[in-house]
């Protein structure tokens, strides 16, 4: 009998087929770090702040190496087609470091002082163990600061 949720992958995969959901769970669950609920919140925060401001916000969570700033800046250079107008939030929970990197164009709308304020509010949340809440609040502050340019207004 086949149960509704198969626990083992049947060996029907070939080199040309896409990985099934059961393969993904072997590789590492999608919600390994955050629950799907938290992922949805992060997704909405990233997407909405990017659309509001016209800047591209990306979020990196992982180790940043010994020279955290240099690593974050290297990551920022690869964060999209227009790193000039990208903002990278790099959080390294293991090292307890958060870096915000703004490209030259984004820095004009997000001065370093505004980034520092957002970082301060993020670290307050992180220190109490609330990673997702801190990230979302930081994104909100950054996008509020960057504003909503007239060219992006649809109506």
């Amino acid at each position: 009998m086949t149960s509704a949720v198969e626990t083992e992958s049947h060996d029907t995969a070939t080199n040309r087929t896409a990985p099934a959901r059961t393969d993904e769970s072997e590789r590492g669950a999608l919600d390994e770090i955050f629950s799907f609920q938290e992922l949805a919140r992060l997704d909405e925060a990233l997407t909405m702040s990017s659309r509001e401001t016209g800047l591209r916000f990306t979020l990196y969570i992982g180790d940043l190496g010994e020279r955290t700033r240099a690593t974050a800046e290297q990551l920022h250079a690869r964060s999209g087609h227009h790193p000039t107008d990208s903002v990278l939030l790099a959080v390294s929970p293991g090292q307890k470091v958060v870096e915000v990197v703004t490209g030259a164009g984004a820095a004009r709308r997000l001065p370093d002082r505004a980034c520092a304020l957002a970082v301060l509010s993020m670290t307050t949340s992180f220190a109490s163990g609330d990673l997702v809440g801190g990230i979302i609040n930081g994104l909100r502050q950054l996008s509020d600061q960057a504003g909503h340019p007239a060219s992006l207004r649809q109506h």
């Binding site: 250079a77 999209g80 958060v98 370093d112």
Partner: peptide
């Protein structure tokens, strides 16, 4: 699958582009 954000493996993104003088901030907790 589950409505999460786009997640790409670190470093698997885009070719590096020089973004001019960078700004930002750094914090620890």
């Amino acid at each position: 699958h589950g409505g999460g954000a786009h997640a790409s493996g670190a470093g698997a993104g885009y070719p590096p582009v020089d973004a001019g003088p960078l700004g930002g901030a750094r914090g620890t907790w």
